[in-house]
Amino acid sequence: MERLDVLKTYKIFIGGKFPRTESGRYFKVEDNNGKLLANMCLSSRKDFRNAVVEARKAQKSWQSASALNKGQILYRVAEMLEGRKSQFIAELMMTGLSKQKAKEEVEQSIDRLIYYAGWSDKFQQIFSSVNPVASHHFNFSVLEPMGVVSVISSNESALLGLVSTIVPIIVGGNTCIVLSSENNPMVSISFAEVLNTSDLPHGVVNILTGKRKELIHHFASHMDVNAVSYCGEHDEEIQELEKVSVENLKRVRINRGTNWNEDKSQSPYYIERFQETKTIWHPNEV
């Protein structure tokens, strides 16, 4: 008798744990032939709320982790992804990618992780300044993470889009709550498993699966979220996001029609977009 496959149960990723959605709801993901691939958690606003709590809890210590440490952790993520490359390729192929495309996407994702791992202790030097004020003060500007960022991840580019948006956010010391690709959410949860085995502190990345329509409002309205990142071209969604974000003046960053495969879709400016500039003055006379 042929061995029966053990199917994977996809849950969501909050605070370093894999709970089921508190809503108890699910949505089906099928392959191109309509065959059921997985029942995914249909996350609710309460899941989001819980994730924000975890992200906030983790933020300060993640911010104060050394840049070197952050870089090494991200490098470790890349290592773990490399080690599970075939799994990710297979998972992407299940949802319709050719083997070649799937391989490219996974490899690019690994490279992108390494790219940003390398920036962890360098981007500050690009964007900081010592400002030559006309008084007897030492004056300098440095970057600081915005804090907690909610992310509506790319629908099309399920793994590379996810990596390309969240890694520059976290390498800068932010923590985040991500809504994964709606069309292809499975790979995001597998990526959560990679994160969870890579020394990334719990709560730095939290990943939900579910429907944009249900969650986007909450991603933008939560008063304890400092910024929101959006991937897509849906004008109504963007408008709602911008409108609702006004309430606490969330910083809104839109990635409209970004092709994450391109080299120009990675740069230190993707890190800088989720940083505040802080300027410090001190007298320099004794």
Partner: peptide, 24 residues
């Protein structure tokens, strides 16, 4: 959490010094 922090001084401004806020 502030865009400008004055240490041992206050309300200093300069054209070379970035000014602006966090949060609201």
């Amino acid at each position: 959490n502030a865009g400008v922090v004055w240490a041992n001084t206050y309300n200093k401004f300069d054209s070379t010094s970035p000014f602006g806020g966090y949060k609201e």
